[in-house]
Design a protein around this nucleic acid. Structure first.
Lengths: 157, 157
DNA sequence: TATTGTTATACTCTATAACTATA
DNA sequence: TATAGTTATAGAGTATAACAATA
């Protein structure tokens, strides 16, 4: 396992005990967090006019693709718990972008659907996503994009 | 550009307008967010006993590697603004894991250093990080790990 | 003027716990 | 008993704005 590659400044600082596992630059989780943060910031800039967050766009998109989906269905696809899902659905419903209905097959479940405003918003959001993704993909070849998606998928599947 | 690969259920749902840019599964940002979330959750489980977050561990690590670093130095390395950095430093200082001092060369800057408790905590945290990283890397070959780091680095450099 | 630290403020995400209604 | 939704609560990260001290 490669380590201490391209060290920035100090490799063995004073006061370092045992348990040294190398440079922070060798930690995958560190790069994942920085990369996520960078993409999150660019996303926020792109979407500041629409007033939508990453999560909200994902929910709109999934509800658009799966009309009548229940909140638990969303939670599973987005790896969120019920309370977090509630908070996001509440905000989108308050803005009249989607609406809750009762499921016909299971009285416990909700049936989520986009409103006309929600569909229009989703179409606009997808255009913004396209620009955002172009910015993101501009640093990769098409093959590298596929590779990155495959590697990332292994982390959340 | 490949699209509509391994579609889950509905590929062309009713009510879909123009501006369709493909499946949400083709969006790099979507996978990046899910992957980050999965790693974040595992990290939280690993660190629940220590009571440290990703950001807090990263800050301890960087301060340990760069004794006397200023808050702006931390902010640059972690891509945070000053206010966010303050909030994290405040929590760590309140737990006596690091301490603020005045810089000798620039009266505006702070000089951050770990306390003895902070060094001990960092050593423990690095052990936990090692286990966390092994869990993460278990799904990759060594070459894929290097590749993933390189691809992620292009997003935040 | 620019930089650094600080404080105040606000929003989002995340998670836990407890409650209600339904299966 | 288990599942789905709901509500309340809390902590953490993120960002903006305004201010004081220093360069």
């Amino acid at each position: 396992m490669a380590r201490a590659k391209e060290s920035l400044t100090i490799t063995t600082p004073p006061g370092e005990d045992a348990g040294d596992i190398g440079e922070i630059r060798d930690i995958v989780g560190f790069h994942l967090r920085l990369a996520h943060g960078a993409v999150y910031r660019h996303f926020t800039e792109t979407f500041v006019d629409l007033g939508l967050t990453q999560k909200q766009v994902s929910v709109l998109w999934l509800v658009g693709d799966h009309p009548g989906i229940a909140q638990t269905g969303l939670a599973q696809r987005m790896r969120m718990d019920r309370a977090t899902t509630m908070a996001i659905i509440n905000r989108l419903e308050a803005r009249s972008l989607l609406e809750r209905g009762k499921s016909e097959t299971d009285g416990r479940k909700q049936s989520l659907n986009l409103t006309d405003d929600g569909r229009a918003m989703l179409a606009t959001a997808k255009e913004a996503i396209r620009a955002h993704e172009e910015w993101l993909k501009s640093r990769y070849t098409a093959r590298e994009v596929q590779l990155l998606i495959e590697l990332l998928t292994r982390l959340h599947e």
